[in-house]
Design a protein around this nucleic acid. Structure first.
Lengths: 206, 206
DNA sequence: AGAAATAATCAACACGATGTACATTATCTG
DNA sequence: CAGATAATGTACATCGTGTTGATTATTTCT
């Protein structure tokens, strides 16, 4: 088997650069194949030699990313640790996930941002549902939950993804470890106690 | 001044019905003006008599909604209540907000859903940032927070909007009061304690 | 290095959506 | 009922799409 033709590699790189550049300017839906090929200085027909359409282009980048993320969970589920150690078990996994976000920040910042793809956002959120379920699944009796567990999963998956999106959009000022700690602490303790402000708030009477 | 011409009212209603119907089937970007006018049984030219384009159409519905939401916060900020009563002060406001979601569920379900508008989602999220800030603004010294307050705002605004979106998408099985309680409790106590499962989890050592 | 393979280009095409224009018809308001 | 105005029907130029077939340029492999 032979290596990929150099022309293909060059063309795909030019498309990638042009596409990402456009994505930082305008909505994915507003980007045309023409836009991409003109900016990339290639013939429009050449685009169709490699991709079915712009959706297929996006899909290929997205799939690359998901393989990375899923590999992390595949390697860490069913660890069968002590039941009460949410932080001790989930924090290292979260750090590993955030490292991928950090590595792939260029793409993820765009695709999760205001010009991004809602479907990717939803798939990413489902990933964090899986992250949660991988821990909860075996350990707690779901009928004992005060609120429907789906609401709790919606709450946490959106919270996590929201913080990460903000972090990416503001140039990853914190380390993956810092963000992971903030997330796990807030999940466990709630906003005020995690932030060290519990003292000035009363425990409410319930 | 005279009443609005009946023909205008009828036409706008037909457009609205057709548009919402299409939005439940496919992505906003995939919907064409043709689609709308054919389903509405009106001439395509008639559409342009009332709206600039499909974005303008969407914008008008969105603006109607935001007026309702903003009116709630405008009426409830600066209440100058006791500093430690997050739940007592914010819960009733949240209930009022959720009642609007409930009333406008038909539209909000679609526009916040997978075929919806990411920009609307973002504006809605900003609304919840405002909801939070209206309480925090005057009451806490932001330099005392363990994590950047922006991360905490991102966490909570996304969590709230995520739960509401799930709730709408699954036909509002719970009452606005139930959802509001779940949200406020989880913000205050964290996922496990709010759900009544704290007992089986150790307080972690920090 | 040269021949065969294949990637990229160019030009052209049919199709469908857009937004606008204008004359005509239908409906509403006072 | 008469005047106002909303809706229709038709046409048009423009733009993006996805596909085609012939031609040129580059790369790979022997």
């Amino acid at each position: 088997m032979s290596k990929t033709d150099r022309r293909i590699i060059r063309t795909k790189n030019e498309i990638k650069q042009a596409f990402f550049s456009l994505l930082s300017e305008k909505n994915f839906e507003a980007i045309t194949v023409r836009d991409i090929t003109e900016l990339a200085n290639i013939n429009r027909g050449t685009f169709y030699l490699h991709y079915v359409d712009k959706y297929n282009l996006l899909e290929q980048y997205e799939n690359e990313i998901f393989e990375k993320f899923n590999a992390i969970l595949d390697a860490t589920t069913n660890l069968d640790l002590d039941i009460n150690q949410f932080k001790q078990e989930r924090l290292p996994v979260m750090v590993r996930i955030l490292q991928v976000f950090y590595e792939e920040a260029d793409f993820l910042k765009l695709i999760l941002g205001p010009n991004g793809d809602p479907y990717f956002h939803e798939k990413m959120r489902q990933f964090f549902v899986r992250y949660f379920n991988a821990y909860l699944g075996n350990r707690t009796d779901k009928s004992k939950w005060r609120f429907p567990i789906e609401l709790t999963l919606a709450y946490n998956s959106n919270a996590i993804l929201g913080v990460i999106t903000y972090w990416l959009q503001h140039d990853t000022q914190q380390s993956p470890e810092e963000i992971a700690t903030m997330l796990i602490e807030t999940i466990l303790k709630g906003t005020f106690e995690a932030s060290g402000l519990r003292s000035i708030f009363e425990k409410d009477s319930e």
